[in-house]
Design a protein around this nucleic acid. Structure first.
Length: 270
DNA sequence: CGCCAGGTTGTCG
DNA sequence: CGACAACATGGC
């Protein structure tokens, strides 16, 4: 069973899945990707002028359309952002298919805990190992992301087998606080970004940057603008005198465009 | 060997 | 508050 959409430059799996916001998707072959989100397996395929989802229309409408944020008016956002600065116009022209995904909050929290002072290939590897170790196999070789309970149940040996280094204790702390109710994710969802940031920072290893990533990618708080080393450099060197606040609720998309553009054009800095 | 990787923490001044 | 080393690990 499958469901297809006409292909559009305003939604690109390649751009959306590999711009640095998600770590669990793999390109299987040309024009073909697969991954797991919230315990659901999906295979995407571009063929001719259509984009095929390996699910029926009901599941597409109920889950994946929302995951990929496809009901959003992407064209309006891109044109508004492009008007703010030539660099954004360039990034929007190069990567118009980047959507801010609605990822699972707990998975986003753990993923960006792991991301700190780390590189993307290794982040992907650690998360993949974590899922193999504690997740459920929902398709051959494809595992769900373990919940707080499953993560908390890992032994020290299992945890250290992830090679997550000092971040392992952060994962433990996160699982413990979510399980105990010390941190309630639904409260974060309902809170303003400012309040949500404070709630998330109760977890050891979550500071301003990780919190903003969780708020943006896990809670779809699209006015968040995570500032990592790339963004600080880009804002200083490429878009000086620009305040992220002017992007309003498109700040998250602006951030992702600038982040990806910067990483794909390292020669602009060095 | 040293430096870096989507940072945070603890410690000093 | 602002600066700064330490933190695990692996790649180069």
């Amino acid at each position: 069973m499958s469901f297809s959409l006409p292909r559009s430059p305003l939604f690109s799996p390649e751009q959306s899945l590999f711009c640095g916001q998600a770590f669990r998707w793999r390109k299987v072959e040309d024009g073909c990707w697969q991954g797991v989100a919230s315990g659901r397996f999906l295979r995407l395929r571009e063929t001719g002028d259509s984009l095929e989802f390996s699910c029926d229309e009901e599941e597409f409408r109920q889950y994946w359309e929302n995951y990929f944020d496809l009901k959003d008016d992407q064209a309006a956002r891109l044109s508004a952002l492009s008007a703010h600065h030539p660099v954004l116009a360039k990034a929007a022209a190069l990567y118009p298919g980047i959507r801010i995904l609605r990822q699972d909050p707990w998975e986003a929290l753990c993923s960006f805990l792991i991301s700190q002072n780390n590189n993307i290939p290794r982040i992907c590897g650690i998360i993949d190992q974590l899922c193999r170790l504690a997740g459920e196999e929902i398709a051959p070789g494809c595992f769900s992301f373990p919940g707080p309970q499953a993560l908390a149940a890992l032994s020290e040996e299992e945890l250290s087998s992830l090679r997550a280094g000092y971040r392992a204790k952060y994962l433990k702390d996160a699982a413990r606080k979510v399980l105990s109710g010390e941190v309630v994710l639904s409260d974060v969802a309902a809170a303003s970004p400012e309040k949500g940031r404070l709630l998330l920072e109760k977890i050891s290893g979550i500071g301003p940057k990780v919190a903003d990533c969780v708020l943006l990618y896990g809670f779809h708080k699209t006015d968040c603008f995570p500032m990592d080393v790339w963004m600080k450099r880009a804002m200083k060197d490429l878009l000086p005198e620009l305040e992220p606040a002017i992007f309003g609720d498109s700040a998250g998309l602006a951030q992702q465009l600038i982040f990806h553009y910067s990483r794909e054009h390292r020669e602009l800095f060095s």
